[in-house]
Amino acid sequence: MSSWDWQVFCKETTSGDVAPSCFGSGGDITYLDWLLSAWGWTLSVSVLALLVALLLGSLMGILRTTPHRGLVLLGNAWTELFRNIPLLVQIFLWYHVVPALIPPLRDVPSFVLVVMGLGLFTSARISEQVRAGIQSLAGGQRMAGLAMGFTLPQTYRHVLLPMAYRIIIPPLTSESMNIIKNSSVAFAVSISELTLFALQAQEETSRGVEVYLAVSGLYFISAFAINRAALFIENRVRVPGMIGGGGH
């Protein structure tokens, strides 16, 4: 224990001097500055990828439950494509292969490619959850919506999706936490996020224990914050009279 040296985070990255405020000044940065910036990159990749995943995953999951065979096929193909290839390989595909096949993508920053890669990978998993949520409502609710004169999109909007999303909040929470953790693959394409920071800072300072503990702590805090936020949402949208729905 006594050999731990948390002051390592107050060191400036170029000179190695300990900055009195622990934050760098005059153009240099400390490891703490770098750590926080890396946390910012991790959160940026995660949040943007989660938005992409929720949007496309919901769309594909919905398509798979429609009565139109072509749309079902599209949703199924999408889901299988993105969930049957390892995440890290998909990131490399976006980085090396896609720009080679589609030349205009060569100028796209790797940050965007990682957001797309992680987002589409996760969209396949969310598509599966959205489909399961809708199908758990059986056919009765769909028929009831249609029988009232709702169009199919209205039936989804007002009848099926509000319940389906409530039902899948727990797995969606896991998926949102996973995306924070999975964002660590971005280090592979040189995004300066927490994992890349850990690798490089450990190398420069030889303080692997402190560096990895700090990084682990930040991953934990980020994922746990999502968990709490989801729990708050789950309680807010709880339906009275449903199983686990609480009092009258």
Binding site: A144, A147, M148, G149, Q154, M163, R166, V239
Partner: peptide, 21 residues
């Protein structure tokens, strides 16, 4: 236009199918 037709044909189901939310 089936939605229009259905809107003036009332239907009651075995399992009620009220919108629970």
């Amino acid at each position: 236009n089936l939605p229009k037709l259905r809107s003036h044909v009332g239907m009651v189901f075995q399992h009620f199918e009220l919108f629970p939310h």
